[in-house]
Amino acid sequence: MTPTPSGTPTTSGTPSTWRSRLGSAFAMFRNPKSIAGLSILGFFVLVAIFADVLAPYSPTKVDHTARFQPPSAQHWLGTTHIGEDVLSQVIHGTRGVIVVGFLAAIIATLIAIVVGVVSGYLTGWRSESLSALTNVFLVIPGLPLIIIVASVFEDPPLLLIAGVLGLIGWAWGARVLRAQTMSLRNRDFIQAARANGEPLRRIITVEMLPNLMALIAASFVGTVTAAILGLTTLSYIGVIPVTTYNWGTILNWAGAQGAFRQNQWWWYLPPGLCIAAIGVALSLINFGIDEYVNPRLRSAGERARAMKKKGLSVNDAVTAVRPTSPQPTQETAS
Rank of each mutant, 00 (worst) to 15 (best):
T181E: 03
A150W: 06
F220I: 02
A73K: 09
R201K: 12
I204D: 01
I250C: 04
E198I: 11
L269I: 15
P56A: 10
V280E: 06
G169M: 00
A193K: 01
D63K: 08
Y121V: 05
P9F: 15
V118R: 05
T8E: 12
G258F: 10
V99R: 04
P156G: 03
R202S: 15
A55I: 10
A218D: 07
A218M: 10
T2C: 02
V47R: 02
W76I: 01
T60V: 14
G23Q: 11
I228A: 04
T17I: 13
L138N: 14
I146K: 02
G101S: 13
G13C: 12
R194H: 06
A226C: 03
P326N: 00
V53F: 15
R305F: 05
G248S: 11
L234M: 15
A162V: 00
A195N: 10
W125D: 13
A226W: 05
T232G: 03
V97C: 06
A132C: 13
Q89V: 02
D63F: 12
W267F: 15
V99D: 03
F287G: 07
Y236A: 01
G272H: 10
D155P: 00
P144E: 12
I106G: 06
V114F: 14
S88A: 15
I204W: 03
I146F: 07
Y292E: 08
A226Q: 00
G37D: 01
I289C: 04
G258L: 11
T205E: 12
P59G: 09
L297Y: 04
A259N: 07
L145Q: 06
A259K: 00
N31Q: 11
A51W: 01
T109W: 02
R322H: 05
G124N: 13
R322P: 04
I140K: 12
I216A: 06
F68D: 08
R95W: 02
R303C: 12
A162Y: 03
L215F: 11
H81G: 07
E84S: 11
L184W: 09
L130S: 06
V53C: 07
I275S: 03
M307D: 08
A276Y: 12
T233K: 07
A254Y: 01
F102K: 06
V318F: 15
P270K: 04
P15H: 14
F153C: 01
I147T: 13
S127N: 12
G78I: 00
P141E: 11
G120N: 04
A193I: 03
K309F: 13
V97Q: 04
A226L: 10
G93S: 05
T2K: 07
Q330N: 11
S72D: 05
G93R: 00
E154W: 06
V239Q: 05
V242D: 05
L165N: 03
I289S: 05
L312N: 08
L200H: 06
G222P: 05
I40N: 00
I146M: 13
A218P: 00
M182A: 12
Q89G: 11
V293A: 11
A217G: 03
D155S: 10
I285T: 08
P271S: 10
E331K: 13
I237S: 01
A195W: 09
H92K: 04
N315H: 14
M307Q: 13
V99N: 00
P210Y: 04
Y236S: 01
L209W: 02
S131N: 13
F287Q: 11
D155W: 06
S151Y: 08
S299G: 08
A174M: 07
